[in-house]
Design a protein around this nucleic acid. Structure first.
Lengths: 346, 346
DNA sequence: GGTTGCATTGACAGCGCTGTCAACACCAAT
DNA sequence: ATTGGTGTTGACAGCGCTGTCAATGCAACC
């Protein structure tokens, strides 16, 4: 019943409690042979450190915070899952916290969150990780943080990062559509406050330029990362005098909305219109036809960020890490129908 | 920097630390006048108990667990929000935990979860709260729990409950459709393992019977709580020789799928087909037209359950509490079109 | 008046861990 | 042999709180 404590392990290994503590916390000054004896005892007794005791005693709580502000519930769930995996594995606690990334008091709010629970550090997800002014303020509080950001290459300075090359992935998706033969490609933007959205737009534009195709303003529609904006945006695109033959939604939920809108106009996907998303969320798999998208494993990315954060807190060196979302071609994209044979039903 | 402790409050109020502890924990044996003095001091100093210290010292961690197993991310997020509100307010910690409600080791898994973090208790959400065998086993572990269940009246025995009358709400929605003049009403079922789904089906059937309308098997389609099952189910319904004039989806995501399917067939909602959902999730508001639905505030319901749980842990009496989802009529339902003038486009 | 019982309060130990500091062994340099 | 550094280990206090138990005050009882 009463669980195994440091002292139990110490007795078993024939050392002092403090030495066990040293081993558990990966401190260097323990002889190899002693360390092994302790590790064996830990394994034998299935010892797990008591978070409360560690937190009460130590200078921090051995618990990290996951901070997010995102309208996309599926994305949040995936991020939580990733953070949970890392924390369970490394015997850290996890506090999950929604927040308002546009609040002027963001930095202070995060500071209070950390102080109240004596958190060891924070994983800052987009778009919280992009509020540079707040981040600057946050850095004066000496709170260990890892940011997840949208960038093609390793950002310089500031907090350690996990960076995701949204531009490149959007470039790949757009290129996929271009290679299929599409020329008029619509783009449905997401979250104005999300850099990722801007990066994906850049990738789209760059790909068009690479193919010598002019970027048309009327083909790029603003909106947020929600189903309905995808629905309305796609309607606007398809109501154009010369509608696009393909639509690239800034995330899967937008793309799912676009899919519904397209079908609501009696058009067939992918024969009349191709549709691509971004994220590989359940939306992209559950829709019909399933969406071509860029696989961006939010769980993997956040897990990595959490591991980096904990490594940093434990005094290890941390190297920034980049991810490249991977193109996933599914049934929602196909070559455009020859113009003469296209018709709009409904 | 170093935060306010019990001793600080005790000094300020001129009492011992233990007395402050008594006030904070709502114990009875404190004179009214003393209690007030302590409360004032707490307010003045903005004291918040240290969870780690409480947990280390006390017999439990002053932290509750929220357990869920649901494919609907929006629903999970809402539940988390509600639990967070209650815990923040009552100075309890919160651990959120996805799990597999169909695992045979469910009870043991929950027990280990509780033991490892010395949790004070669990809020069991559907469908975890419906695994009667596991629940019976769980009850032998003496873990305080509050269940959220789908039931018309207060369940007898077992753990305390928050019960939601899904049957009644589904009855109300169906009646709404019947009153509009619909006779052939399709029903898209959700999660086979969710009692709520069965309850809603019952409400649907009961309402039909109340109106003397036969329940037709071909109008009730199985599926899970996901967009795509709504899409496919609606297609099947509308492809019937004599299709329904209204479709009732077991939750909003299913209904959103049905909406997309209906529109994909060139039919107009609500003029050709009425569609209703259940839950009042973002889906129902973001779709076009917005969905008629039953407002079931998962956040409010879970907040209530969490408050009940914490009250029980603190030794107070707990009374079960019922919720009745409330009919919300929006643009997706209207009287059926006279049959002669109905046409199917596309 | 002395005793009992209840309501109210406080002293104290200790939850399981980490930070600090001191102790010890050992080797290289003096 | 002595000193000083380095690597390794342990003793001990104490983090902020609660559980236990004892002390206090006061009213009610024989």
């Amino acid at each position: 019943m009463g669980s195994v404590t440091l002292d139990d392990v110490a007795t078993q290994a024939g050392v002092s409690a403090k030495t066990v503590s040293r081993v558990v916390n990966g401190e260097r000054s323990v002889r190899r042979e002693t360390r092994q004896r302790v590790l064996d005892a830990i394994q034998q007794l299935d010892y797990r450190p008591n978070l409360m005791a560690r937190g009460l005693s130590g200078s921090h709580a051995y618990t990290i915070g996951l901070v997010y502000d995102n309208p996309n519930a599926y994305y949040i769930i995936a991020m939580q899952q990733g953070a949970l995996t890392a924390c369970d594995d490394l015997h850290f606690g996890l506090q999950m916290r929604p927040c308002d990334s546009r609040s002027p008091g963001l930095a202070e709010g995060l500071r209070d969150f950390v102080r109240r629970s004596r958190l060891s550090g924070l994983v800052l997800t987009t778009p919280v990780s992009e509020r540079t002014a707040s981040l600057r303020k946050l850095s004066t509080y000496h709170i260990p943080c890892v940011r997840i950001v949208s960038a093609a290459r390793e950002p310089r300075g500031g907090f350690p990062c996990v960076y995701v090359d949204d531009r490149d992935a959007a470039h790949a998706i757009t290129t996929h559509l271009l290679q299929l033969g599409h020329v008029r490609i619509g783009f449905l933007r997401g979250g104005k406050h999300h850099h990722a959205s801007a990066q994906r737009l850049t990738g789209y534009k760059d790909a068009l330029r690479d193919y010598g195709i002019p970027v048309r303003k009327e083909l790029m529609i603003d909106g947020d990362y929600v189903f309905d904006d995808g629905f309305r945006g796609a309607r606007r695109l398809l109501d154009l005098a010369e509608p696009p033959t393909a639509i690239f939604g800034c995330n899967d939920e937008i793309a799912a909305g676009a899919l519904a809108a397209t079908q609501s106009m009696g058009l067939h996907v992918p024969y009349d219109v191709s549709i691509a998303g971004f994220e590989d969320s359940p939306f992209s798999r559950h829709s019909w036809p399933p969406l071509t998208t860029a696989r961006q494993r939010a769980d993997t990315i956040v897990e990595r960020a959490a591991r980096m954060l904990i490594a940093g807190i434990s005094g290890h060196d941390v190297k920034n890490k980049g991810f490249n979302p991977e193109l996933v071609v599914r049934g929602s994209t196909a070559p455009p129908r020859p113009k003469s044979r296209r018709r709009k039903r409904g």
